[in-house]
Amino acid sequence: MHGFANPKRFLALAGWLTPLLLVSGFFVTAAALYWGFTQVPPDRLMGETVRIIFIHVPTAWLGMGGWTAIAISSLVFLVWRHPLAAIAARGAAVPGLVFTLVCLATGSIWGRPTWGTWWVWDGRLTSMLVLAFLYIAYIALAQAAQREGVSARIPAIFGLIGAINIPIINRSVVWWNSLHQPPSITMGKSAIDGVFLAPLLFAVIGFSLIFGGVVLARMRALLADIQADARLRRRAMEAD
């Protein structure tokens, strides 16, 4: 990576912001999940399993948000060549993958008692599974590009192309009639009763804070690695 922009300002900011986001996210999420687990009444049809919504929905949104972040950062990197944008895109990959997997797993656990099946090849479920595979491919590609000294433009292009999947996930329940219910929360509207909606919003805020903290931690780790490698390489050249 040539002409690495001076990340001093980023590091100064991330230095205190990373622990702050992680700690605040931990407490907000813990409070929201405690609320959802113990205080919320059972749903009219689903009963107690409605509580899974407080993990399933925030992780689903952040799983998709993670790839949106990858796509936007990749675009910024490709157009303005800002190296920190490439780092930001890679930073969003691990939390995005983890939340996508948590979403798939909790959805499967939720599907068994409500639908009567762990898994169904429904448009929403399949496109979410595809998202998990895209994350894995992106992480492998970005790692390989760094190790082999290949241009970071290749994973960035992959990140942009993969973004096609995001609107597909979003529209899947409308396009393909199947088991997954249509969206409950759309622009300014909600079909979720207030007793469920309030803790859900808190859980979304809490998980988002955690997501932000993990992205910053990943970015700091990637930066430190790149800087250490660059210095080692320079020293090896001086020694010659």
Partner: peptide, 11 residues
């Protein structure tokens, strides 16, 4: 397979 609708209403 039971299909749930998008409404969440307490019991």
């Amino acid at each position: 397979l039971a299909k749930h609708d998008e409404n969440y209403v307490p019991r």
